[in-house]
Each structure stands twice: as structure tokens, then as C-alpha cells.
Simulated scan of single mutants.
Amino acid sequence: MSSEALFSPARLGAIDVRNRIAMAPLTRSRAGMDGIQTPLAIDYYGQRASAGLIITEATNISRQARGYAYTPGIYTDAHVEAWAPVTEAVHAAGGRIVVQLWHVGRMSHASLQAGGAAPVAPSALQAGGTVFTEAGHLPPSMPRELATEEIAAILEDYRQAARRAKDAGFDGVEVHAANGYLLEQFLRDSTNRRDDRYGGSIENRARFPLEVVEAVADIWGADRVGLRLSPLSTAVGDTPLDSTPMATHGYLARRLGELGLAYLHVVEGQLHGGNGAGLFDVQALRAAFGGAYIANNGYDRQRALDATASGHADMIAFGKPFIGNPDLVERLRLEAPLHDAPAASYFGGGAEGYTQFARM
């Protein structure tokens, strides 16, 4: 199979990329508890700038948005100052980088919230799993249901985070509407039991994610905004699937396409699991969107070559392989062996397993 497609330039909306390999969002928990990135992030992202597009680790749009310790923010001037040299390093190496805007919703713990407040969600439904706190892994706290009038304030948080992302020098933003976090909690009928204009029908449940996209696009232009979906993922918070995932996500994809977004980024199957083959028609989802499509979930070199050569996807996002292989693009090009990073270095710590790796 020719490697020409995977390693050829492309354009996602207004974002030019030099190859079809994206670095997927990877939470590494190296920021301070104030959400300020350390200087290590400059080297970390700069080392990986050969990717056609870097999508940053999920980044909190507000203090309320946070659900895990040591994750970065983009809601204060200090956050902007810490991110600016990161984007400069990526650009100096010829790369492109967008920040993933994140609100975890119910996937949080009261100890991570201002004043020990309860996390917020579309409905007061307890999440499963655990979240990472300063005291270690703990079950998420019981959330409270957002009042209708409170939703506008979160929408404004997204808008301000998008503005700060522009100030920090990013090339665009990705709206995180996947993996059981706030926007997906609104979208799925399994986690949204509301009876106001944000609940009930597919159109109502998709309303808030669409309002977020429109607010962010007001700052950036729609052609520099992407969105991530995970129609079949239940891994985070033991989040049940929507009762009609194809109809629900297909409606949202069509509306996003009408807005002219830069790309749609889809976790094709279960997060950290199978690719969902036969369970969900990702090509129908892509057709409903009509724009550039980034495929994600367990791709290796051959699958990436096949997917880009066949036109299944415009770009392939790799996650874990980028942890231990800052030079992943070149390794894939040369069919060189990949280094397996120690799992103990995935979350938290210092340079070891983060920026310190042997290159070819």
C-alpha cells in the first residue's frame, strides 16, 4: 500500500497540515493545581511538532470544568502566558496546534471544585468510575442539575476560553464533546433527563453542544474549529450509550457540517477498546458532516495507510504511540520500531517518560 496519502499535506478548514497524522489529546497531568502549564510542556509539544496537527491534552475552560488534578486551564491570563511559549515552540518547528476545550460536567469530585461545591451536569445522575484528585483516585461526587439560566454562563466560559486560546497563539480549537464529559452528557438521553429546551428530543439535547460551537466559532471562524465525538464509548464514568446513537450523532454531525467546521474527530468505537465495526456507521456520520474527518481509535501504521489511501479518513489521530515516540511521524514513514513508554509515566511526574526519550 502506498504511503503517499498518509504523509501528504492536507487542509482542514483554514488549517494547513503537512501530513495526515494527528497527535490525539493525551492527558498527562503535569500542570500545577492552578492549571498553569510548567515549562516542560514547551519541550513536550515542541518535540512532537512533526505531527500534521497536534490536539492538546483536554484543557479546562473554567475552574468548574475541572475533573482531574494537575490538568491545564485556558481561563486566566496566567494560563495564556504559560501556553504561549508552547505554541511558539510548535510553530518554530513547522507544526500546527489546536487546544481542546473541556468541561467534565459530572466527572469531577467536590475537592476539585471551588469551595467544595458539587459538580454540575444536565441531570443529577451519579457517574461511575473514578477521577484523579490530589488524594488519589476517588469516585465522582454526586452532581447537581444545572438550572436553565445557568447554562448561559458556561457558554460564556467557552467563549472566553476560545478568546484566550487565540491570545495564546493556537491555530484553532477543538470542542470536546466526547468520552462522557459535559457536552456528551447533554447529547445522550442516558445522561440527560431534562424537560426544558435542553432535554427530550434529539434537537433539544444537541442544542447546547451546537450553541458552544457557534460561540467558539464567533471568536475563531468555523473553519478553525473542530469537534470530537465518541458515539460508542462508555469507558469514562460508565456512561450508558444513547438509545439511538446513529440518529442522535448523525443529526449533530449534519448541523456541524452546515456550520462549516474545520473537521470532525471521531473515536471509532469504545475508548481504549474495539473499533465498533458493525455497530455504528462512521461513514454515514462522515457523510452527514460533509467536511474533513479525523479517525481515531487503535490505528496502527497499516490501518492508517489503508484508511487514508481508501478515503475512509482525511487524517488519523494517534494517541499512546506519541507518548513514547516524539518522532512518531518519521518512525511510521520508515517502518521503524516504536518505543513503549512505561505506563507509570503516563500521568504525573516530571521529565522522565514525558520529554526524556531516546530518538532514532
Rank of each mutant, 00 (worst) to 15 (best):
V80L: 08
G46M: 06
V98I: 14
V99A: 15
Q47K: 11
S50P: 07
T59M: 04
I97C: 10
H79F: 11
L40V: 01
W83E: 01
G95N: 06
G46H: 05
V90N: 02
S50G: 06
S62I: 00
T76Y: 10
A78E: 10
G94I: 04
A58D: 01
T56R: 02
Y45N: 02
E81F: 11
R48M: 04
Q64D: 15
V86N: 07
R66M: 13
G95Y: 09
G95R: 06
E57R: 00
L53Q: 06
A82L: 00
E88V: 13
Y68M: 10
Q100E: 11
A65R: 12
E88Y: 05
W102I: 04
V99F: 03
Q100W: 08
A89S: 09
P85R: 05
G46K: 09
Q64G: 08
R63W: 14
I97N: 07
V80C: 07
Q47T: 09
R66W: 05
I74D: 01
D43K: 15
A69I: 13
S62E: 09
Y68W: 13
I74R: 01
A93F: 01
A92P: 05
R66T: 14
R63Q: 11
E81A: 15
A69Q: 10
L101R: 08
D77Q: 15
N60T: 07
V104I: 12
A49G: 02
T87K: 14
Y45S: 06
N60V: 07
Y68I: 13
I61M: 05
G67Y: 04
P39L: 04
D77H: 12
I97Q: 09
L53E: 06
G94E: 04
T59W: 06
Q47L: 14
I54C: 02
R48K: 03
A49Y: 01
A84F: 00
E88H: 14
I54F: 10
T56Q: 09
T87H: 12
Y45E: 04
T87P: 11
L101I: 03
G67A: 04
Q47R: 13
V98G: 09
H103K: 00
Y70A: 15
D77G: 14
G95D: 03
A51C: 11
Y70E: 14
R66S: 03
A58V: 14
V90A: 03
D77L: 12
L53I: 08
G73L: 08
Q100K: 04
R66H: 07
R63E: 15
T59E: 07
A82P: 08
L101Y: 03
L53G: 02
A51D: 08
A89N: 02
A69W: 10
I54Q: 12
V99C: 13
G46S: 04
Q64I: 13
G46T: 12
I54S: 02
A51K: 10
Y45K: 02
Q100S: 06
A51T: 09
I42F: 00
I97F: 12
Q47D: 12
